[in-house]
Design a protein around this nucleic acid. Structure first.
Length: 523
RNA sequence: GGCGGCAUAGCCAAGUGGCUAAGGCGACGGUCUGCAAAACCGUUAUCCCCGGUUCGAGUCCGGGUGCCGCCUCCA
């Protein structure tokens, strides 16, 4: 049994599919008017992992994630840049794909765009008008909220209460029958992109596209609908009004899954507040798996703190937010410009996550090595899920609790590391079997998370090279030092060996002496 | 103002009324080591406050307090 927290029910519900063995998932994708930020990455990752898990559990999943390529913000961006809106949309859709690919996201099975769905959108609006749930007014078409009894159910709002607040913050459009009514179709103003419709040239309103595209690709009724919390009201509320208005009660999404926000300095990270980090900025410093792991350490419905640390380029002291804004280091009085500060941005949470990834990959590397050395004597890989995978999946079945699931890995990882270093007193066959089971289970875990699936040596080398480049580390020099230290140790010249270690320490490195020689890592 | 959410160790964090409240980071002991490091072992929690329901509450209910979000574009 898989339980899913459904926003509409405000409770966890057992996942009962429309059609046994098959699951339809719709994710409200991006409006492509700018580069994606970490919040967008999280919103994409949540359905990504849900889909991966459901597939790992043997379900046939159809994953649909749309692209909103007709929108006021896109038009505004086009006007600001002096570029046609369609060009803005095409460009940022490409950028989005680049970011998602870089983050290791599954490609959706279908990625519908508004611009390719004008027909179903117009058909849906026509149906709503025909059923008295929408009305045309001077080239616009509005949804008649008062005609839909369940309006407000998802967002837990009452129309009367909404009416009290309406008009105080937004000027009331006189063409609407009620301030609550929302646009299904917007008449084109001069210079705006427009499509023909029964109501004249114009473009779809924001909400109608999702109703139309869900219908086109998942049918009138489907299983899971994902999106950020902020979309609950009014976006998803309006989708329900549109779709159930057209197709009838009980249709449309059966489970509403909403992810929490990423917070930055205790506040919501958002473009409108200008306090966001783009996916690209983050990926410049950290591996995709690190970002995924970091985002998955917390339950998807919770807020997630995205800590940012900036050290003074002069003295290295941490500069708080105020100091950053003022551009003055409180410790040494230096006045680094925004550019200089930008180069010193660090993400402590991601650094911790990366170290954890390195630990897991190091363990995997050791496990694989042991199995390879055992060669033909290695036991057949486990055919049934081991204890590790079962414990992991138990948490995943509980509303995709990735944080709890990740916690179950700690004990097995420590045990395997213990087995890898312990030589005597352990039954050889039992040891091999345990390690083989671990590797087999971790492959499934990797399939679910999109982490830990790389070739361990490759991942570790990539991490080393990236960090070395960031530190402008001379790898050849490091190897020289390491060789020198090996020689000094072989000659039991401890003074020299320690001096070399100090030198490496000054470079920001640590030395690990093992039975098979010395290796180094970042401090 | 209306609605919703959250509050668990120094920090992050899981916890679907029931045996000793996961896990990570940090810190402190120990094993290993020439010394270290890594790895492993161990230690580190009157679950925001007050009341209630219950044989039993971190978990359910009521009331505080404090943060956050939505109500306008937002992932």
């Amino acid at each position: 049994m898989i339980q899913v927290f459904d926003t509409l029910a405000s409770a966890k519900r057992e996942l009962v599919l429309q059609e046994s063995g098959r699951c339809g998932v719709y994710c409200c994708g991006p409006t492509v008017y700018d580069l994606s930020h970490v919040g967008n990455a999280r919103a994409a990752l949540v359905p990504d992992v849900i889909v991966r898990f459901l597939r790992q559990q043997g379900l046939q999943v159809k994953y649909v994630r749309n692209i909103t390529d007709i929108d006021d913000k896109i038009i505004a961006r086009g006007q600001a840049d002096g570029v046609p809106a369609a060009e803005v949309a095409a460009r940022f859709a490409d950028e989005y794909h680049r970011d998602m690919a870089a983050l290791g996201m599954l490609e959706p099975d279908v990625e519908p765009r508004v611009s390719g769905h004008l027909e179903p959108i117009i058909a849906l609006i026509t149906t709503l008008v025909g059923r008295g749930l929408a009305y045309a007014a001077q080239g616009d078409v509005y949804y008649r909220v008062a005609a839909f009894a369940d309006y407000g159910k998802l967002g837990k709002r009452k129309p009367e209460e909404l009416l009290e607040g309406a008009g105080s913050r937004v000027e009331v459009d006189t063409r609407k029958e009620s301030p609550l009514d929302f646009a299904l179709w917007k008449a084109a103003k001069p210079g705006e992109p427009a499509w023909d419709s029964p109501w004249g040239p114009g473009r779809p309103g924001w909400h109608i596209e999702c109703s139309a595209m869900c219908g086109a690709h998942l049918g009138e009724t489907f299983d899971i609908h994902c999106g950020g919390r902020d979309l609950i009201f009014p976006h998803h509320e309006n989708e329900i009004a549109q779709s159930q208005g057209a197709f009838g009660p009980g249709t449309f999404a059966q489970y509403w899954v909403h992810n929490g926000f990423i917070d930055f300095a205790g506040e919501k990270m958002s473009k409108s507040l200008g306090n966001f980090f783009t996916t690209r900025e983050v990926l410049a410093l950290h591996d995709a798996e690190t970002v995924r792991y970091f985002l998955l350490t917390v339950h998807y419905r919770s807020g997630l703190n995205f800590d940012v640390r900036v050290d003074c380029p002069e003295c290295g002291a941490a500069m708080g937010r105020e100091a950053q804004d003022q551009g003055v280091c409180p410790a040494c009085g230096a006045t680094p410009g925004p550019e200089a500060l930008r180069t010193r941005v660090r993400f402590p949470g991601l650094e911790e996550a990366e170290d954890r990834l390195a630990y897991v990959y190091t363990t995997l590397a050791g496990a694989r090595k042991l199995l390879a050395e055992a060669g033909a004597a290695s036991p057949a890989p486990a055919t049934s899920p081991g204890a590790l995978l079962q414990a992991f999946c138990e948490h995943m079945r509980n509303d995709f609790n990735t944080g709890g699931a990740l916690g179950t890995l700690s004990r097995p990882l420590a045990d395997i590391n213990g087995l890898l270093s312990a030589g005597k007193g352990v039954d050889k066959a039992a040891r091999l079997a345990a390690v083989a089971a671990f590797v087999a289970d971790m492959e499934q875990v990797a399939a679910i998370l999109g982490c830990f699936g790389a070739e361990p040596g490759v991942w570790l080398r990539r991490r080393r090279d990236r960090r070395a480049a960031q530190m402008r580390l001379d790898l050849a020099r490091v190897e020289e030092l390491l060789t020198a230290r090996r020689e000094a140790r072989a000659a039991k010249d401890w003074g020299r060996a320690d001096a070399i270690r100090d030198e490496m320490s000054a470079l920001g490195l640590t030395v690990n002496d093992g039975p098979e020689g010395s290796t180094w890592d970042f401090a």
